[in-house]
Simulated scan of single mutants.
Amino acid sequence: MAKNMLIAGNWKMNGTHADLAGLGAFAGLADRARDGVSVALAVPHTLVFSAAQLSADTSLSIGGEDCHHKESGAHTGCVSAAMLRDAGASFTILGHSERRADQGESDADVHAKAEAALAAGLDIIICVGETESERDAGTAQSVVGTQLAGSVPDCDTARLTIAYEPVWAIGTGRTPTPDDVAAMHDHIRAALVSRFGEAGESVLILYGGSVKAANAEELLHVSNVGGALVGGASLTVADFAPIVEAA
């Protein structure tokens, strides 16, 4: 495809050092990707250093799955953006729907983390998306607009990526249509342009709703879809490769 694309995997709470034996295949996939297609993996904090070392001379970017908003201090069990950067990460995911739901993260929390990540030299992927009740109430676009306004800091847009997660389709048996995806991605694009002007046109907007080999090609051709945030299908290169190839 003509436009630049990012295919980012999110391993979530999966993986041990034994699983990094297959990282070379992911790196090879990134190295073979067509011009304009970038490949990244966000791995658990315990794997960031080793994954970054193993992929150091490749096109594969390694990132974290979250960070704390403070650089250091009495925050037991937390990992700062500076620590991620020191371990070799080049980006982090923030505001993922699972953290918003399970850890109760607010837009203000995500905004603070984003500022900390940028200050530490990390690029950011900020997730937004509406729940089933919000979609059924007809407030999907206003909810996502509010999340964008509250979660995204003023920043160099070259370091910003947005990921749209249709939370309402996760585990419900409901599947977004290409028209559903296009409508939300077009809405997000309009909000970015309103906020950042012409620079908002170039921010990649990833789709993060159960992307897999069977639906990747169709989804990646939807209006204003600039790639994918991939969960389960990023755990093995066999499942991940067709998505990269579709880009």
Rank of each mutant, 00 (worst) to 15 (best):
D156N: 10
T157Q: 05
A158D: 13
R159D: 11
L160D: 04
T161S: 01
A163S: 02
A163V: 06
Y164A: 02
Y164R: 03
E165Y: 02
P166L: 07
A169E: 04
A169R: 04
T172G: 13
T175D: 09
P176F: 02
T177K: 05
P178A: 06
D180P: 12
D180H: 10
V181P: 04
A182L: 09
A182S: 14
M184A: 11
H185F: 12
H185N: 14
D186K: 06
I188K: 01
I188F: 01
A190W: 06
A191M: 03
V193L: 07
R195S: 13
G200S: 09
G200R: 03
E201G: 15
S202G: 08
S202T: 14
V203A: 07
I205R: 12
Y207A: 08
Y207G: 11
G209Y: 03
S210D: 09
A214S: 15
N215D: 03
E217K: 14
E218M: 02
H221L: 08
H221C: 11
V222C: 15
S223V: 13
V230D: 00
G231L: 00
G231N: 00
G231H: 00
A238I: 08
A238Q: 15
A241V: 10
A241C: 07
V244T: 13
E245M: 13
E245Q: 15
